[in-house]
């Protein structure tokens, strides 16, 4: 039986696989902080690009791409939606061009780019850290971080059950399709969802009995099968995770959060291209993904 992947973990031996889970958590937190305080989208895009390079170095690029399929439409939609809306949050918006019925403003496009770059940067770095984090280490780290054992158990059990039940759903859907059931729309909802959930309820009873027989709730200290010791390198990396926070604070008070002194500028052609491209890309992904899967799936 093939092994079921748990969470986002991709096995490997890279630098990121070796560092302590706490260090990964500190860096993700630090990037979230940095991205929310930095007001220059180009810097966020740059940090995201560095993240993508690291993803390639950690040999996790295919899994990264699969995850980004979810966020692709969102990053395009953020720019498109912010660009077509009248710029209510700016005092003197800088008019750029017309695109069909929409008046485009530089500030609106940059604002949309800021949201999209923020999500791209945060998601890229956090996915990198998660893809190199073994679920066993996650559970052990939560225990070391004094997360209550019950909550820790619930989180790790959920992480383990998700891929198993996703596989069950895909088997059930394939079985229903082989019986000529239409596999889309509300008609297909009950025949595909009820067997999965019925299986889930059975699982609750089995799991509950297993917990009873294995003395769940015992107050004794649990041993850890997999735990990384916190090395000197991890201490250094943890302290260096403060760098993005310090940088963003410095920029907030001295560099106007990285906003250029002359403001952002875009040429009308570039602005129109960005908005049109994002609009088309967003609508194509939303409406065209199913068509593309049908088209290329057959080949």
């Amino acid at each position: 039986m093939p092994s079921v992947p748990i969470g986002a973990y991709v096995p490997g031996d890279s630098f990121f696989h070796k560092i302590h889970p706490f260090v990964k958590f500190y860096w993700v937190l630090s990037f979230v902080f940095f991205c929310f305080f930095n007001k220059n989208p180009y810097i966020n895009y740059g940090v995201a690009l560095i993240g993508i390079a690291m993803v390639v170095l950690a040999k996790t690029f295919p899994s990264y791409l699969r995850t980004m399929v979810v966020f692709g439409p969102a990053t395009f939609a953020m720019i498109f939606l912010q660009s077509i809306v009248p710029p209510a949050v700016f005092d003197n918006p800088q008019y750029l061009a017309e695109l069909g019925p929409f008046s485009l403003y530089t500030d609106s496009i940059i604002y949309g780019m800021l949201f999209s770059s923020r999500i791209l940067c945060i998601v890229t770095w956090s996915i990198l850290m998660l893809m190199t984090l073994h679920p066993g280490e996650l559970s052990a780290s939560l225990q070391r971080a004094k997360v209550p054992y019950t909550v820790n158990f619930m989180i790790t059990t959920t992480l383990q059950l998700i891929p198993i039940m996703q596989r069950e759903f895909s088997i059930i859907l394939s079985a229903q399709k082989s019986r000529a059931m239409e596999a889309k729309g509300f008609k297909a909802l009950l025949p595909s969802i009820i067997p999965v959930f019925a299986g889930a309820i059975d699982r609750v009873q089995q799991l509950s009995m297993s917990l009873e027989t294995r003395a769940f709730g015992s107050k004794n200290e649990r041993t850890l099968m997999r735990y990384k010791e916190f090395s000197k390198r991890d201490t250094f990396l943890s302290i260096s995770a403060l760098t993005p926070i310090i940088l963003s604070m410095y920029a907030k008070f001295n560099l106007n959060s990285f906003i250029p002194s002359t403001g952002f500028s875009l040429s009308p052609n570039v602005g129109v291209f960005i908005v049109a491209f994002c609009g088309i890309a967003f609508l194509t992904i939303i409406f065209g993904a199913g068509f593309a899967i049908r088209l290329f799936g057959k080949k």
Binding site: M154, L161, Q166, F169, A183, G185, I193, A200, Q205, L207
Partner: peptide, 22 residues
């Protein structure tokens, strides 16, 4: 304790079903 994680998985699977059935 067993029902809570399974219910969380139901939430995730519900999302998967919605996207699979478009």
């Amino acid at each position: 304790i067993a029902l809570v994680p399974v219910a969380s998985v139901m939430n995730v699977i519900g999302g998967t079903v919605a996207s699979a059935l478009k």
